[in-house]
Design a protein around this nucleic acid. Sequence first.
DNA 1: GACCTCTCGTTAACTTGTTAATAATATTTT
DNA 2: AAAATATTATTAACAAGTTAACGAGAGGTC
Lengths: 152, 152
Amino acid sequence: MEHRPIPDGYRSVKDALPIALTRAREAVISHWRPVISARGFTEQQWRVLRVINEYEPIDISTLASFSALHMPSVTRILQSLEKRGYVSRERDLTDSRRSWIRVTQKTRKVMYDEGEKSRRINERIIAEFGESKFEELSRLLNELADLRIDRN
Amino acid sequence: MEHRPIPDGYRSVKDALPIALTRAREAVISHWRPVISARGFTEQQWRVLRVINEYEPIDISTLASFSALHMPSVTRILQSLEKRGYVSRERDLTDSRRSWIRVTQKTRKVMYDEGEKSRRINERIIAEFGESKFEELSRLLNELADLRIDRN
DNA sequence: GACCTCTCGTTAACTTGTTAATAATATTTT
DNA sequence: AAAATATTATTAACAAGTTAACGAGAGGTC
């Protein structure tokens, strides 16, 4: 593919931040996907299970926020996970709009079984990339995510 | 939401890199989405148009790679854009599996009309975040995306 | 030329992303 | 208390993400 000159004042599309973020995310996830899908979960389902496992009991809005998924996605994911026996829900007694979600024993077993493998994958990525660069990247990403810019 | 202690050796799920990347991406995109959707495009359609506009004529595999989208997505996006008159395609004469994609005059006009606004949004984000941090982040992201780790 | 293999792009099926609307319940206002 | 407003979660509709299969060409190999 030949590269043509870019008009002044423009940065090449390929250097756009969203594309760089997408590529980086894909590079990281690609190491986990085989493990996760071998267990019969999607990446997002796995994320939801990990968040519930860590913070249970948790309500659905908080779950969506912590796992960086939209509410409709979480609704669908929970329906699937509940049907398959990986999570349970319980209506709040004082506010019946709210549900409290928990993982089941079945999930705890899966988490325990995969824990070691996940940790190794994580450590290998960090080691290969460099721990200090990893920390620096995490810092920058969080800072960018928390940026508040007025839209005028 | 109360925070409970995390088992040893585990990093909190919320600190996972994919979630941080997703949040950062959302923070950036949220500034463009209103502008793009006001023009009747999705974020991905817009990305595809920008890539074609910059590299035309371009084949579909290269287009997918440059815009960080999967082939099936690009196929669907091109069908939609072609139907609406924003792109044209032409079969390669020597290899009839391949098509060459170009933008139409209609697209060039839209790009021209939105160019100034896009540039301002971009500059505001960079200014707010800090140009040196922006460059450092871009560097780290590209390096992470290009990491090759063996999967054993 | 017949066969095998590889590549380009599309289709299919299912899950998630995205936005808007909706139902049900809580809270606030008057 | 009645009415207006806000919050929690689900549903709906369409676009894109993901994986696998498929069709149609192109490129070797015999």
